[in-house]
Design a binder for these strands. Structure first.
Lengths: 251, 251
DNA sequence: CATTAATGTGTTATTATGACGCAATGTACT
DNA sequence: AGTACATTGCGTCATAATAACACATTAATG
């Protein structure tokens, strides 16, 4: 696939790439979708190059889909990374030899790449990791247990999480991250996981319900230890409305 | 200058540029630093290309300085723009002929450019617009009276202002935008201009002073009509502290 | 010296927040 | 069956933040 791109490098934006931070929520844990790069024996964010005939927002969808099979998610640009040395150890001579890439064509790869970061919150259960190449492994990794990543992907991931934490104060989240029916404690765990701090149960309930995006269902969660919590769903219309207008006015 | 870049295009990141939104405050109005492009007879944001040996954040400073002479400002990346057609009418054949650029070299320019947007808030009085080339005109333009801009620069400017409006709810601003001594009504005008809405004088005073970043001076503004307002200055230490920790916790 | 258009200070009602208490529920254990 | 236990649901209270507004103060102006 990389060779395809090199053979047709006129069709791709030079010196530019896209990397995606895909976040899901499962077992009360925040998960990140990562790809195992066999040759480097490291993990990486799903990323790739930008076709010259696609808007970068479109290219982000293309890239994500081609690497993981994931489709139909809303990707949000959050930052662009371009330190001088960010990829000068990535496609070195050894690697190019290993990949059987001629030195001349390799130049397209060895120069500094600037990468545009996109992130998405997705429904864990609906995403079936599905690698493009057979040498690649796509997996959900607990965000607390993310191993060493290639390049500056750790920095990109951290920046995405920082952005998400700020978003949390401006927008409601959860619609894409939780199943259709969920409990308040589950939603609270999501918030606590992202913010990395404990919240008061009772105050959380009051605040989250006051936003007016939740519908209390006449149904309780079954097969749980202790008292069965009530099930809720998002009121899509109100949710969208709050997304548009934001949460805290501030001024 | 453009020819210099083309003759040494190996030294610049291909297909990538930086554009800067420089905002100042004067006469109770928000001003934008713009460059008049004579050949296009349009105005543009100060922008340019990225040296391959510079981090993009550094390149932003370089670019701004080379176009306007402005130095020593804190530039903040806010978004990256990459629609397919964003610059396909900019360096067309006619323009390349006008600039006496050979068709082969021109290819470096005619492809789609992705641009990284940076913005800064600066002290209007300390910035003396100082064009790099004699064919260029650098000027402060009232943000309400910005004329037609080249490419998607209007979109970039709008996005910068949107970002600033959000920042306003998370961070204190004004340190770079106002002179050392200023009045509360002046600060309020700044907020009102950015937010494009009226605020209540008395509530504004209470809220802004509660943040704890202002020092009330034992001095009044002179030569003003009506009652002379008190002068204030920012408490730099506390200001920096709030910048670090943010304003509204939210959760 | 009254007029005018600002600024400075204070009040009040309402709402949001943080820190809790306590009863209800369903599982697990004896 | 009965009790302990962890967790949920609902409520209280003091405090802080917010929005809307009233009134006195100040300085230039004619």
């Amino acid at each position: 696939m990389l060779k395809d791109i090199l053979d047709n490098n006129e069709n791709y934006q030079p010196g530019l790439s896209i990397d995606c931070v895909i976040l899901g929520f499962h077992d009360n844990q925040l998960k990140v979708l990562l790809i195992k790069v066999e040759r480097a024996n490291k993990w990486s964010l799903p990323g790739g190059f930008i076709p010259v005939d696609q808007d970068i927002d479109t290219a982000a969808i293309t890239v994500l889909n081609s690497r993981t099979g994931v489709d139909g998610v809303f990707l949000r640009q959050f930052a662009t990374f371009g330190k001088v040395n960010r990829n000068n150890q990535h496609f070195d001579k050894k690697t190019l030899e290993y990949l059987q890439i001629e030195e001349e064509k390799g130049k397209w790869l060895t120069r500094r790449f600037v990468t545009i970061g996109y992130y998405a919150l997705v429904d864990f259960s609906k995403i079936l990791p599905n690698p493009a190449g057979k040498l690649e492994l796509v997996e959900w990794i607990d965000h607390k247990e993310v191993p060493e990543l290639i390049l500056d992907h750790r920095e990109i991931l951290d920046k995405a999480l920082d952005t998400l934490r700020i978003e949390l104060n401006l927008m409601p989240i959860g619609y894409n991250l939780l199943p259709e029916k969920f409990t308040i404690p589950e939603l609270q765990k999501l918030y606590e996981t992202i913010l990395d701090k404990k919240l008061d149960r009772r105050n959380f309930l009051r605040k989250i319900t006051n936003i007016g995006i939740l519908t209390k269902l006449d149904e309780k969660k079954s097969n749980v230890a202790h008292k069965a919590p009530n099930l809720y769903s998002f009121d899509k219309d109100k949710y969208e409305e709050v997304l548009k207008n934001g949460l805290n006015q501030g001024w």
